[in-house]
Write a protein that binds this DNA or RNA. Structure first.
Lengths: 150, 150
DNA sequence: ATCAGTGCAAACTTTTTGCACCGCA
DNA sequence: TGCGGTGCAAAAAGTTTGCACTGAT
C-alpha cells in the first residue's frame, strides 16, 4: 500500500475509536511504513523523535485500532510493524546469531495451502478466526560468512 | 520421545558442553516434558520448585545445549519448551483473547511443502540453516463460546 | 472550554548478574 | 580439591502509569 493510501486508512481507524491522527502519530506510522522489518522501540524513538512513553502509548492505541501489531519475539525488546492489511501478508527471517529480522514473502499457492490445512487443524482444536504467523529462523548471510565457527 | 529416551539425550548434550545433568535440571526438564504447551517461567518455578534465578540460569544452559528453546511471544513473559528433536515438530495455537497456547501438528505433506518453499525463499535472502516456526492466532473454544461479545 | 495527546519521572515487571556457599567428579 | 551449580539479593532492562501541561475541535 502506498503512503497516500496508508495514512487515510490509519486516520479512519483511529477516528472509529475516537482518536486523533496527530502529526506525531503520523510520523510514527511513517517510520513503521519505511522500515523493511519489524522495528524495535529504540528505532521508533530515534526515527519519530518521541519519548519512549509516547511511543509505547501510541503503539498501544494504534494496535487497538488495528493499525500496527506487536511481532512475536524471543524475549528481549518488542518489535512492531504495520498491520498486514496496510502492507502485505509476509513472514520473517530471523537470524539466530545476530537477531536480525527481514521481511519475506512466499508464493501465494503455498500461502493458500497453509491457510487451508491450518484452518482444518484449528477447527479440530476448536479455534476460530485463525491467522498464521510463519517465521523462519536461520543464519543470515553476514553471520554465516563472517563467523562460520559460531 | 519417551522419558527414558529424553533424559539420556539431555545428559549427553549437557556433557558435550562440560555441564552436569543434576537432579534439579532433570526436574526442570521433566516439568517441560510434561507440559502440553510452552511453559511460562512461573509454571517452571512452581513445577520444579527452584528459585527464579536458577530457572533462568538453567534454561539458558539448556538452550545453549539445544535442549530447550524459547518460544516466540508477544512480549509479556517468556515461554519455554523442549527442543523439537526431543519431542516432535509441532506448532502453536495462540488464543488472542485469553493468551492460551496449545500445541498442534499438521499433516506431514504440508510440512514438507512448507519446508521446501521456505528453504528456497531463505536461500534467495542469503539465509542458511532454516527452521520454521508456524504459529496460529485465533480464538479458542472457550473464549469464543463463553464470550461471543468480546 | 473540553477532552485527547504529550512528556517527564516514578513505578512495575521481567530478566540478568555478583557473590558466597554447596556438591559432585 | 576444583569447577560447576545453587540461592539470595541487588541490579539492569524493558514496559507501564500518574500527573500536570499542551493542543486541537
Amino acid at each position: 500500500m502506498r503512503s497516500a493510501e496508508v495514512h487515510p486508512a490509519v486516520e479512519e481507524r483511529l477516528r472509529a475509536l475516537g482518536q486523533r491522527y496527530t502529526a506525531k502519530r503520523r510520523k510514527l506510522v511513517e517510520v513503521l511504513r519505511r522500515a523493511r522489518r519489524p522495528a524495535p522501540i529504540a528505532e521508533l524513538v530515534a526515527g519519530a523523535g518521541l519519548p519512549q512513553s509516547s511511543i509505547y502509548r501510541n503503539l498501544a492505541v494504534l494496535e487497538r485500532a488495528g493499525v500496527v501489531r506487536r511481532v512475536l519475539t524471543e524475549g528481549g525488546a518488542a518489535r512492531f510493524e504495520l498491520a498486514e492489511d496496510l502492507t502485505a501478508h509476509h513472514h520473517h527471517l530471523v537470524c539466530r546469531a545476530c537477531g536480525a529480522v527481514e521481511d519475506v514473502t512466499v508464493p501465494e499457492a503455498l500461502e493458500h495451502q497453509v491457510e487451508r490445512v491450518l484452518a482444518a487443524a484449528a477447527r479440530r482444536a476448536g479455534f476460530r478466526g485463525l491467522a498464521h504467523r510463519l517465521d523462519l529462523v536461520g543464519t543470515c548471510g553476514s553471520c554465516a560468512g563472517e563467523a562460520p565457527t559460531g
